[in-house]
Write a protein that binds this DNA or RNA. Structure first.
Lengths: 236, 236
DNA sequence: CGACAGCATCTTGTATACAAGCAGTCGCAC
DNA sequence: GTGCGACTGCTTGTATACAAGATGCTGTCG
């Protein structure tokens, strides 16, 4: 279970746990006992505990002292936040495009879109390309570094999106929306780019809403409180 | 040195260290030995170490394995990021204002501005009111929760701003810019609100640039690398 | 006097032991 | 059968011991 250690054990454990949470391999409500994880990963409690603290800071995990740690349910408030922030940042970046865009960056995006269009593309692969595409858009206006913040706020949104990718919206639809944004940017039609971006981001958000209706048990209640005991969901 | 413990020791230590870093009581380059901090705060290495990990995740601290932990210098890239994100989010919020704004929220903002206008206001007090004002603006459009993300990305920006508040820009100037934004929002002139917001955010950014020129040793180099050894700044 | 080798000391990373508290269960009393 | 209480086991929070490595000093040799 222990992957080859690149840096510290904590970095490896953190990356492993975060991936499993975002891919729903560890679904909302799953118990994350520090002792069990340490044994499963072949390390001590220390790196596991430090990883859980970081994941809790991201809102992906809830830690209840003396009770246990659990994968948090998808918080609609956080999803809406992430969506709002993402939309604000990406639209603002479109307003900051330079007169002449770096041809290399454009070529990278075009290549990315080509790979998105491959029929039968694996969902995980598409998801990675999707991330890269949005990062690439930010880079066009020199704001690539802002992606880190957007990405950090995006944990809940990503989990909800992944459900949507599995259940309904095919990658081809998303890829087409990406292509529309790219074409508008390349031709310098900022107004159209804005419109295409809004269409895409709203579609993502609609996906989340639809998935929420069909899988309410994976989402937290609207009142903000998200009580979880053991593996049982309690709504109060 | 140990303040009354509200929750866990880690929460207390984290809050204490974060405050000292943001207020420059612990300036960039300061050594943060886990052993020394533990002894000074009257706790063991564990809560101190966990706090440093969280601060490192925020970019406020740099941890060098087997060497030491240090308060990071202000990173111009992160400052620009935070500024860009903040501007994007706050401008987007202005576009999302409802037809009729909650009078209570407007009254709160007006009250806040009154307190900002007090002559001879302490800088720390003004800074707190400034935070509250921008959060209040986001709340007008129901996006108050997004403040958390903006705030998390804002650590470097805040440190740079605090220098500016001490050295140059008087609170009255900032308060006047706040008032201009508020008046435009209240009268429903979104175009003017946008303009006033841009004026304010750009002024903040200009402050940072100016402070950087006069205190280059507190800032990281442009190339992204920020080597620090002991208490000595090394530029390579 | 200068350069280099070795060591003493400090650092963070990890493992482990102990503390305090919640939960669910088992058993006893009624 | 039913209700209540002690208890066993598990949880996270904290303290401490050990591991591996980097740094800078110090003594020695050229």
């Amino acid at each position: 279970m222990l992957t080859p250690v690149a840096g510290t054990n904590r970095q490896t454990v953190y990356a492993t746990l975060r991936r499993k949470v975002l891919t729903m391999e560890l679904p909302p409500g799953a118990s994350l006992s520090e002792n069990e994880l340490a044994a499963a990963l072949g390390v001590s409690r220390t790196p596991v505990r430090e990883s859980l603290i970081l994941l809790a800071e991201e809102g992906l995990v809830q830690v209840f002292p003396k009770i246990g740690s659990f994968v948090s349910r998808v918080d609609p408030v956080r999803v809406a936040d992430a969506q709002f922030i993402r939309e604000a940042v990406e639209l603002a970046a479109l307003d900051d495009l330079p007169e002449t865009i770096d041809p290399q960056l454009l070529a990278d995006l075009d290549d990315n879109l080509s790979r998105q269009d491959q029929p039968g593309i694996a969902l995980e692969d598409f998801f990675a390309l999707d991330e890269e595409f949005h990062l690439g858009l930010l880079r066009l206006s020199g704001h690539g570094a802002a992606w880190t913040t957007v990405s950090n706020a995006k944990g809940h949104l990503d989990r909800a999106r992944r459900l949507g990718l599995h259940d309904a919206t095919p990658p081809t639809v998303n890829a087409a929306q990406h292509r529309a944004i790219f074409d508008a940017v390349r031709t310098g039609d900022i107004t159209e780019a804005h419109a295409a971006m809004r269409v895409h981001l709203r579609a993502v958000f609609d996906d989340v809403e639809r998935i929420r209706e069909s899988n309410p048990e994976l989402f937290a209640s609207n009142d903000g409180s998200t009580p979880v005991r053991r593996n049982v969901v309690v709504w109060d």
